[in-house]
């Protein structure tokens, strides 16, 4: 219990510090949202009026405190470019990206662990070679290119999946694969090496000598041990998934947080940028916490200490 409270406290501190850092950095980057919004033909006085409406003429500290006050009350402010409340838009896009990340992660985890286990069991056979090939492709191919390739083959040539959008369940397949491919590669490699290491341990020999059947040996005795580093990897990967979703969202016109963040940066929509980044930081923190928890539960050696 104390452990949980400690982690919670440090999480809050991290969030607060990050909010200040984010605020400072984006106000420091060159570029004026009032100019962008007013457009190239606008006169200087129009730009000034816009700037006042956006509240950007106030001192930085005032702007920050006002924003922070709003956040505590659940109000993320008004978007400088769409003039709409940020929270509802952000919530929808966040859920979209979360959904996509979960599907992508599920794909990466299920196929990654499966492929990793298979290649460890069939070490140095054609299956092993195949899975290592998948891993190399997954790590080295740029996400954007993978997305385009998938669309060209499966949407245009074969007509199975739609090119864009998120209406039917089919439209989630390609983006999930696209966003998860990199993680799939990492998880496969991690699973393979972790399994191989574990399979060489003495307790596996004991298990075999006890006459246990193969599924029990591989999936109970071996995998449970192998999972410890794999879980850590998965946790880190999920963070990257959420943060790196923008490329997939752009290719597939998927209305998610990543694209929202990039568009906000281009328009210098300060409150939208701040809100999006804060959400992402929170996700990271939560995921890390969950990974620690899982680690704790998987590894009984940690439990007796302290």
């Amino acid at each position: 219990m104390k452990y949980v409270l400690k982690r919670l406290c440090s999480a809050v501190i991290v969030l607060f510090v990050m909010s200040v850092v984010i605020f400072l950095i984006i106000h420091w980057i060159p570029g004026d949202p009032a100019e962008i919004y007013a457009g190239t033909g606008a006169s200087a006085s129009t730009v000034e009026t816009v700037r006042k409406t956006m509240g950007l003429d106030r001192p930085l500290v005032v702007q920050y405190v006002d924003w922070l006050k709003g956040v505590f009350q659940g109000d993320f402010g008004i978007s400088l470019s769409t003039k709409e409340e940020i929270l509802p838009t952000l919530a929808t896009k966040f859920i979209n990206t979360l959904q996509l990340s979960v599907y992508g992660a599920a794909f990466a985890i299920i196929c990654g662990i499966g492929l990793g286990v298979l290649s460890a069991l069939y070490h140095n056979t054609i299956i092993d070679v195949f899975s290592m090939l998948v891993a190399i492709i997954g790590i080295s191919m740029p996400v954007y290119w993978v997305g385009m390739l998938l669309v060209m083959v499966f949407s245009i040539q074969l007509g199975i999946f739609p090119v864009t959008g998120n209406e039917t369940w089919l439209s989630y397949v390609l983006p999930s694969i696209c966003i998860g491919l990199n993680s799939l590669a990492v998880i496969t490699r991690m699973t393979r090496s972790s399994m191989l290491e574990v399979l060489n341990e003495d307790y596996i020999v004991t298990a075999v000598a006890k006459g246990l059947r193969k599924p029990s040996i591989y999936f109970v005795h071996a995998l449970k041990n192998a999972m410890i580093p794999i879980i850590t990897t998965i946790g880190m990967q999920f963070g990257y998934l959420m943060g790196g979703s923008v490329l997939t969202e752009t290719v597939f016109v998927y209305p998610g947080l990543g694209k929202y963040l990039v568009d906000s940066i281009q328009a210098r929509d300060y409150p939208a940028i701040q809100a999006s980044l804060l959400v992402l930081v929170t996700v990271f923190i939560i995921v890390n916490f969950l990974v620690d928890l899982a680690y704790f539960m998987l590894n009984p050696r940690l439990r007796s200490e302290g």
């Binding site: 385009m148 669309v151 949407s155 245009i156 290719v251 597939f252 694209k259």
Partner: peptide
């Protein structure tokens, strides 16, 4: 009117009929 910022995706959508 659908917002599609990526030119390759626009081309693909036209080709697939979307």
């Amino acid at each position: 009117f659908v917002t599609v910022t990526e030119v390759a995706t626009r081309v693909n959508m036209l080709r697939s009929g979307e």
